[in-house]
Design a protein around this nucleic acid. Structure first.
Lengths: 193, 193
DNA sequence: GACGCTTGTTGACACTCTGCCAATAGCCGA
DNA sequence: TCGGCTATTGGCAGAGTGTCAACAAGCGTC
């Protein structure tokens, strides 16, 4: 019954555990999933979790980090188009990504530091920052620190809007798109002297 | 050494435990705080926690619920003023609340359902909905379901902006105020047919 | 093809934490 | 002053977590 002991490359095994954790944590809270269950899902013994991640919490954070980052795919070519159209196409692409890509990203809009510790918040912050860079790039704007600082909150807003749309049904896709496009344009162009 | 056993009214003791939990969870993550520590901070035995809240997680949720809700104070009189001014004053009031009232509310903008379970997300959602109602009231607009659905994400945005301003220093107060005012006005007036 | 070394992997041990419940003892009313 | 209601306690049983010495899979070497 017990599967024969198999010896893998560290990076491979690490990945294996990480993916199992992502799956489990996608539907159940941190403290409800035991390391025993985590280990079983990954097909290893509990000891390995500590060996590769040190800590249960550490594994949790790694899983979140992996789940929360948006896919780093290239956007469709937007060269030469006016800013407004680029903005609309970009937000449309993000909405599509939100539907197909998964719930984890959308769900990252609630209460990180509610935890008390800032490590989870840091994970979300990093993801938002990356999303902000992605949008700036798509809009053909310079990767400016100030612009990024404005677009990071926009990421938070976007996730929240997606939740309204996908989970509560209080928005149509079009409404969401209109609202987000207008907001992003506002954030990027507004003078705040 | 052991304090004499004191018998309190249930509501009082409940409150006592709740406040201790809020304090502890304000700076440390859920799983790092044991029920023993929670109990000690409240000056009671572990048993009472289960007696009043059933569960460690239940106490945690109650503490979050209490920390995350904005103060339900009345806003300064805004009658008769034009919408734009009302919006600006309202957002200004919220920014003040964010500084003086505490970190918990601002920090509620990261990764609730990152937890996996939706109960924490529900707590944050409720808080956002309440904030949305508060803003609608301040703006003198009807408490419309559609308008509320638009302002809930705005709450998420606001928290995120406040974090940029207060914790990262990437915004000045004025910049934050300008951005938020413009956004709220956009959300409330825009047609999305 | 057999041996031995490196190191990925295991299993058990010690400890802490959680939820439960019967026993205890404040406080109020008679 | 006494009795009863119930808030509060303390200890028990079970589960979960991190550690570590022992084990063995796979590779290089002879």
């Amino acid at each position: 019954m017990t599967a024969a002991r198999l010896r893998l490359a560290p990076s491979e095994r690490r990945q294996q555990i990480l993916e199992a954790a992502q799956t489990l944590y996608a539907t159940r809270p941190y403290d409800e999933v035991s390391t025993a269950e985590l280990a079983q899902a990954a097909g290893v013994t509990r000891g390995l979790i500590n060996h590769y991640f040190g800590d249960k919490r550490e594994l949790f954070l790694a899983a979140m980090r992996a789940s929360v980052l948006m896919p780093e795919q290239a956007l469709p070519g937007l060269d030469g188009k006016p800013l407004e159209e680029r903005a609309r196409l970009t937000m449309s692409w993000i909405l599509d990504a939100a539907t197909t890509y998964g719930e984890a990203w959308v769900n990252a809009s609630g209460a990180a530091n509610l935890h008390g510790s800032s490590d989870i918040q840091a994970v979300v912050d990093e993801a938002d920052d990356r999303a902000a860079r992605l949008v700036l790039d798509a809009l053909g704007l310079p990767d400016d620190a100030e612009l990024r600082a404005r677009l990071r909150p926009a990421a938070s807003l976007t996730k929240s809007v997606c939740r309204e749309w996908l989970q509560h049904g209080t928005f149509t896709r079009d409404e969401a798109l209109n609202l987000l496009t207008a907001t992003v344009l506002l954030f990027v162009t507004k003078e705040t002297s």
